[in-house]
């Protein structure tokens, strides 16, 4: 079954880049433009993996992860945080919120894809 990735980012450019890279790698991609839409779409499409930006209007990436982790059966869905910072504090926060891993922007398609494959077994 095709791995379904939900990509949440308020930047149209990043959404496009993610979609292109992921679709090319054979993933199915759903995008959301902010945290609120992200959580909403999560409920709708039941993705195999979530990639979320941190700084977003309405609800930030940590809020998204917290909301996702609230659902018991969503405990195991890998959530990658997409961030421009690589500071330890940020990782700490991401981890505390329940993030599975993080990707530092700008990402390389190949690395991103290998991480996703690793986390989804896809």
């Amino acid at each position: 079954m095709t791995t379904h990735v939900l990509a949440i980012d308020d930047s149209r450019t990043i959404r496009t880049l993610l979609t292109m890279a992921l679709e090319e790698a054979g993933f199915k991609v759903t995008t959301a433009v902010d945290g609120v839409e992200g959580v909403e779409k999560f409920g709708q499409v039941d993705p195999d993996l979530v990639i979320t930006d941190v700084n977003m209007p309405k609800k930030d990436g940590f809020g998204v992860i917290e909301d996702i982790r609230k659902g018991d059966r969503n405990r195991t869905v890998p959530v990658l945080v997409l961030t421009t910072e690589s500071g330890a504090a940020l990782k700490e926060r991401a981890r505390a919120a329940g993030a599975t891993g993080w990707i530092v922007k700008p990402f390389e398609d190949a690395s991103l894809i290998s991480v996703i494959r690793r986390l989804t077994g896809g």
């Binding site: 308020d10 930047s11 450019t13 990043i14 880049l17 930006d53 700084n55 977003m56 209007p57 421009t84 922007k105 700008p106 990402f107």
Partner: peptide, 18 residues
């Protein structure tokens, strides 16, 4: 925050294009 986000997003996306 909105100002920050705008700059931040430009930076993030610009990084993708080196």
């Amino acid at each position: 925050n909105a100002v920050f986000r705008a700059v931040h997003s430009i930076k993030g996306a610009a990084g993708a294009f080196s």
